[in-house]
Computed example of a mutant assay.
Amino acid sequence: MSSLQIKICGVTTRNALDATIGAQATHVGFNFFPPSPRFLTLPDAPALAAQAEGRITRVGVFVDADDIVIAEAVAAARLDAIQLHGKETPARAAALRAQFGKPVWKVISVAGAGDVAKADAYADAADFILFDAKTPKGAALPGGLGLVFDWDLLKAYRGPLDWGLAGGLAPANVAEAARGTGAALVDVSSGVESAPGVKDETRIRTFCFNARNA
C-alpha cells in the first residue's frame, strides 16, 4: 500500500467532506478565493471545520489575499495549513508562516523546466511546494481548470522541500501521475466534480482508491 498523501480541494458541503474523509484522503482544501466556483464563505466554514476536526488536515487556499482575509479564514475554518496560490513572494510566505504559526504551502505554476526551478526560492520560506499547471494568460482562475503539465519535468527534481502534484488529476490518471513523478501528495479539485464546484462522491472515492494503490 502507498503512503501517498491525498488532498481533495474545493470542498464546500458536508456530504462532500464526508465522502472525502470516508475515502481516506489525508487533506481537505477549503477555497477562500471569491471568484472560484469552489469558494467557501466564512459563515459556512465553521461547520465544515468542526466536521473535519481530528479526522483530516484542513488546508486553506488563498490567492494574493491580505492579512485580514487570511486571519478570518484561519479562525473560521480552524485551518491547519495555509496554501498560497497567487504571486506571493518568498518574503510574503515567510511572513505569513511567522504571523500565523501554520505550515505554508506555495503553489508553483508550471509550463516549463524554468518554472520548476522557481520552487527553490521558497526553501526557507515555505514548508511544502505544490506544482500545478500554469493557466493561460488572462484566465480568471489560477487553478482548478483541469489543465495538465508535462510530468516529466518533475522526474529529476530534487528540491529542498517536500512537494505535491496538482493540475488535471483525475481518477483515471492519478496512479500514473504518482508513480511517474514520485510526488509525496496528489491534489485534485475539478477532476472529482460533476460540474464546476460540485463534488461527485463516487469520483472522490475512486480517486482516493486509485491513488492509495498507485
Rank of each mutant, 00 (worst) to 15 (best):
152 D>T: 15
58 R>V: 13
176 E>L: 08
119 A>P: 03
147 L>V: 07
135 T>A: 14
13 T>V: 00
23 A>Y: 03
168 G>V: 05
192 V>K: 01
36 S>I: 13
2 S>R: 14
173 N>H: 04
106 K>L: 05
173 N>C: 07
53 E>H: 11
199 K>P: 14
73 A>F: 01
202 T>P: 00
154 L>T: 07
54 G>E: 13
110 V>P: 08
174 V>L: 03
26 T>S: 15
75 A>E: 15
50 A>I: 07
120 D>V: 12
163 W>N: 12
137 K>P: 00
192 V>R: 01
54 G>M: 07
114 G>E: 09
67 D>F: 03
51 Q>A: 14
27 H>L: 10
186 V>M: 04
138 G>I: 02
56 I>S: 04
31 N>A: 06
150 D>F: 03
76 A>P: 15
213 N>M: 12
63 V>Q: 04
146 G>S: 05
169 L>T: 09
55 R>S: 14
31 N>P: 05
56 I>Y: 03
202 T>Q: 13
33 F>W: 08
169 L>A: 07
17 L>F: 04
60 G>W: 03
191 G>L: 03
78 R>Y: 09
105 W>E: 06
158 R>T: 09
83 Q>N: 12
69 V>S: 13
16 A>H: 11
25 A>P: 00
11 V>G: 10
158 R>M: 00
140 A>Y: 04
81 A>C: 11
